[in-house]
Amino acid sequence: MPLPTPSQTVGPFYGYALPFPGGGDLVPAGHPDAVTLHGRVLDGAGDPLPDALLETWQAAPDGGLAGRPGSLRRDPVTGGFAGRRGTDFTGFGRVATDADGHWEIRTLPPPARAPYLAVCLFARGLTHHLFTRAYLGVPAGEVASDEVAAGEVAAGDAVFAAVPADRRDTLLARAVADGRTYRFDIRIQEGPRGEKETVFLDFLAARPAAG
């Protein structure tokens, strides 16, 4: 079997290459089912990362994981970006953080039985991307506490259940009062006042034996 090509940092200068207009708009503005997921990316000093790139991947609301092409749909006349077709849900988002380390996407809610978005984080200084998940399964006002919410998610999700109980809250996207906006901050390292490091997930552990 061939040996894997190593990862290298995305560096500081991907900004004119990877982000694209509408990268965070998985559904058209004003879509009745749209939810907004947003947050900040912070380093170990508590400083925002102005040069991080986030990608999201998710099941369609019906649970389908086949995806659809067209996230980077192009205008054949100008070569520019035309935006996604309103009828195709591609499941893929890509956004860069701003000077405040903030990012935002507008998407459809994932299915209730797998209520998460897979998140992949790239940044200058990060030699190998990080995977985490934003769980949206906690509608505002419907659960008593994070603990109860986390327990409910864990009951139906093998990956979430594998996360130590005292760190699960870092994977919960918090719904604000309108119920359609979720906040998900990512801390690459524990913060200066003991704010918890976000849980990152290792999918490579099941590496086949060499040979």
Partner: peptide, 13 residues
């Protein structure tokens, strides 16, 4: 990389 790497090992999925 100093402030931009997790200190805890990633959770094996």
């Amino acid at each position: 990389s100093a402030l931009r790497h997790p200190r805890l090992p990633p959770v094996r999925v």
